[in-house]
Design a protein around this nucleic acid. Structure first.
Lengths: 114, 114
DNA sequence: ACCATAGTTCATAAAAACGGAACAAGCGAA
DNA sequence: TTCGCTTGTTCCGTTTTTATGAACTATGGT
């Protein structure tokens, strides 16, 4: 199958990152990929806590995250192992990604509380 | 004319802010509104350094920024005076917006340098 | 009233996202 | 190898969003 391509850090754009993170499903995916010590696969997200996501849609979401430079996908047998690239991105984007994820986390926390 | 409506701070969403800031024209507009000591109008942006933007398109961009909670628009005579709401947003979103604008600024700086 | 200016809304076209169906690729068993 | 199963991608029609010229509304000056 055609090899997956990941942008070099210098080709990653702020615009691409913001677009990728302006979708709640993609944010859930990225947060879980970052939280988990083991790599996550596409199928791990077919049943989110709040909705079912078709696999074709999930595949697109992963592509957006990958092309934005936020995750790395490696083929392992029949599945794709996805890991975060946030450490690579930190020198270039500083606290931006962390600040965004923190803001999302606080927003959801407020939503639950009231 | 129908009064312009601005979301209350508690109704502003991270998703809305990221969507608003994932467009380069809107980022240019917001940065200039923040930089300028005087309020800016829609027509101030008809001729951007790198492109011409039709006024109907500009009107939509301002609406997106306004509904995202990033700017406040007040009618002054025939024109709209737009001012930033970033100070209001800071307690809720911390460094997020600043980190995003800093990342954009550094990206453009690199682009010029090489 | 008339005209000029600032901005919005409408109508339509172009672009992007969604999602089911078909497809491709890897793995194990026979 | 071939079959069956699983994972993920691609195709394609539908829906949603965005872009923009044209028409319209609102305000101010003369």
């Amino acid at each position: 199958m055609k090899p997956l391509q990941h942008p070099a850090i210098e080709d990653v754009t702020v615009e691409g990152i913001l677009h990728a993170l302006s979708d709640p499903v993609r944010v859930q995916i990225l947060k879980e990929i970052m939280r988990s010590s083991a790599p996550k696969t596409c199928s791990d997200f077919l049943n989110l806590p709040d909705r079912v996501v078709p696999k074709s849609t999930l595949s697109q979401h992963f592509r957006v995250l990958r092309e934005a430079g936020l995750i790395r996908s490696e083929r392992k047998g029949v599945e794709l192992h996805n890991t975060p690239r946030c450490e690579e991105l930190k020198p270039r984007f500083g606290q931006m990604i962390g600040a965004i994820l923190t803001a999302y986390a606080e927003e959801y926390a407020e939503g639950k509380g009231g």
